[in-house]
């Protein structure tokens, strides 16, 4: 049995303002889901809430990960359980090299399994990092650069995918990983994700656009509007959305509500 992320009737407010109004979604290891929707529909709120950002207040519902209710779990605990968020806007951490950061992140996980753990041996770590960099067509000098400092948009997103490759999560949420990327960068990033796909990885791709879905082929597509998932279907749904836009859904909603 693989792990699953189950979102049940989730309600979330930001500064007292309700943003998510009853979201239901199940993502299992080995599955790829796409979550689409217009700006301001609550997609990024969902991503940040799942990761436990303190500014997002859960006012109702549940988030179950691998059989555990995450309500009382800190961001770090969620991560160590195998949840991962690829950020839309990764922040810079000056003075901390990518390699140092990754080693600390890996060691934080190992310490949970074994408090006496002395950390991943450096040669083993380097080998693993270089392997993953090659997979993502990244220059090896990348490991020596300060995390996200002075990175181009493409480099930032690639660094996120590198982290995902190193940390080997069970479920990864990718928050608009395609935004701000040119065609080549998009291809490299999404091919990287495709290469990481396996039976052991469940992915929730949050995006505005169909184009990333040409590389990362989802089995399921969901559409979020005004804090709820209003439509779910197969890959066709994304294509349909690309052609038709959101208006037909808005109409459908309006009629449904009437």
């Amino acid at each position: 049995m693989g792990a699953a992320l189950e979102i049940r009737n989730l309600h979330v407010s930001v500064e007292g303002q309700p943003i998510l109004k009853g979201v239901n979604l199940v993502v299992k290891q080995g599955e790829i889901h796409a979550l689409m929707g217009p700006n301001g529909s609550g997609k990024s709120t969902l991503a940040n809430t799942l990761m436990g950002h303190p500014a997002y207040e859960v006012t109702g519902g549940q988030m179950i990960f691998d059989g555990v209710d995450m309500a009382e779990l800190g961001t770090d605990e969620r991560s160590r359980m195998g949840l991962f968020l690829a950020f839309q806007y990764p922040v810079a951490v000056p003075g901390v090299t990518v390699a140092n950061f990754l080693r600390n992140a890996l060691n934080a996980r190992r310490k949970v399994d074994n408090p006496e753990d002395k950390g991943v041996p450096i040669p083993q770590f380097r080998k693993m990092m270089i392997e993953k960099m090659d997979l993502l067509q990244m220059d090896h000098s990348f490991g020596g650069r300060y995390l996200n400092e002075g990175f181009s948009g493409g480099e930032k997103k690639r660094a996120e995918i590198l982290q995902m490759a190193m940390l080997q999560p069970k479920i990864a949420i990718m928050d608009e990983t395609d935004s701000g990327l040119d065609i080549d960068a998009l291809r490299i990033v999404s091919e990287g994700v495709a290469k990481l796909s396996s039976e052991d990885l469940g992915v929730l791709v949050i995006t505005h656009y169909q184009r990333i879905l040409n590389h990362i082929r989802p089995q399921y597509v969901h559409i979020m509007m005004d804090g709820q998932i209003v439509e779910s279907g197969g890959p066709d749904l994304a294509l349909h959305l690309e052609e038709q836009g959101y208006d037909w859904l808005r109409e459908k909603q309006a009629n449904g509500d009437a």
Binding site: T75, D76, R78, S79
Partner: peptide, 24 residues
């Protein structure tokens, strides 16, 4: 938040930012 989302505790995350600040 970013560092904690990679599994570091709050103390570890703070220490990492501080060490980075001092790195030069």
């Amino acid at each position: 938040f970013y560092l904690m989302s990679r599994g570091m505790s709050e103390d570890e995350a703070n220490a990492m930012v501080v060490n980075g600040f001092l790195e030069p």
